[in-house]
């Protein structure tokens, strides 16, 4: 009987594949795999097909087995899946909030190595550092994306049009059909791109409100 229990626990741990670990956490962060939700601490081992959720003033930095890093800001929710096949792309889904992504280029993969999906679009990445955020409303229909390094392709879900965004540029994904042409977005210049706590603070203090806030700053008379 004891042998059966041990065998079952061994099977359950090996079927939940480890895909990375948490390298920094601040505040309340949870990780959900299936129906099991756990509080996250540093060195937490991440299993495939898990979802992270950060609460107010919380932050988590994740290091994945494919070399990528993700910094999930407060009040955000992100699902992660890393395939066994190293030539297939890592997939993430951002459900709310905002996140920074750092993806190491894989010379073996000609297509996108990392995919981020939002409600409006799919972002394909080969080797880069970029930021994605939903708009200012809780259930916003729009989102923003800007690139710090590398190249990101943006494809709205209901459109065949693909937009390539270079370093220093960003786009406003208005809905499932529309994305603005890439251009420099002044409000993204102060984003905190850090992923290593030893090199400085990791908190991002730029609010998505500032993407819209230029309007109030402008004088007309």
């Amino acid at each position: 009987m004891l042998k059966i229990i041990l065998m079952m626990s061994l099977i359950s741990t090996t079927s939940a594949r480890d895909i990375g670990k948490v390298i920094f956490v601040k505040g309340k962060v949870t990780n959900t795999v299936g129906k099991i939700k756990r509080l996250v601490k540093k060195n937490f081992i991440i299993q495939d097909k898990s979802t992270f959720e950060t609460f107010k003033k919380a932050l988590v930095v994740i290091s994945l087995s494919d070399g990528s890093k993700i910094k999930l800001n407060e009040l955000s929710k992100l699902a992660i899946s890393v395939p066994k096949d190293k030539n297939s792309p890592t997939k993430t889904g951002l459900y709310k909030g905002s996140s920074f992504f750092q993806v190491i280029k894989n010379k073996m993969i000609k297509k996108d190595k990392f995919i981020v999906k939002t409600r409006q679009a799919s972002l394909g990445v080969r080797g880069t550092q970029f930021f994605v955020s939903y708009g200012k409303k809780v259930k916003s229909k729009d989102s923003w994306m800007c690139v710090n390094k590398g190249l990101v392709s943006v494809k709205p879900k209901s459109s065949k049009k693909e937009v390539l965004v270079k370093a220093g540029e960003g786009v406003h994904i208005k809905d499932k059909n529309n994305v603005t042409p890439p251009k420099s977005l002044p409000w993204t210049k102060n984003l905190n791109w850090g992923f290593d706590r030893r090199k400085g603070k990791l908190d991002n203090t730029v609010s998505i409100e500032e993407a819209y806030g230029d309007i109030l700053g402008q004088d007309y008379d």
């Binding site: 406003h172 208005k174 603005t180 042409p181 993407a211 309007i215 402008q218 007309y220």
Partner: peptide, 16 residues
């Protein structure tokens, strides 16, 4: 009151 007619997220025309 000012109404902003937006184009690609940026103000295009102000009606005030």
């Amino acid at each position: 009151v000012t109404y902003l007619v937006l184009d690609e997220g940026a103000a295009f025309i102000n009606l005030f």
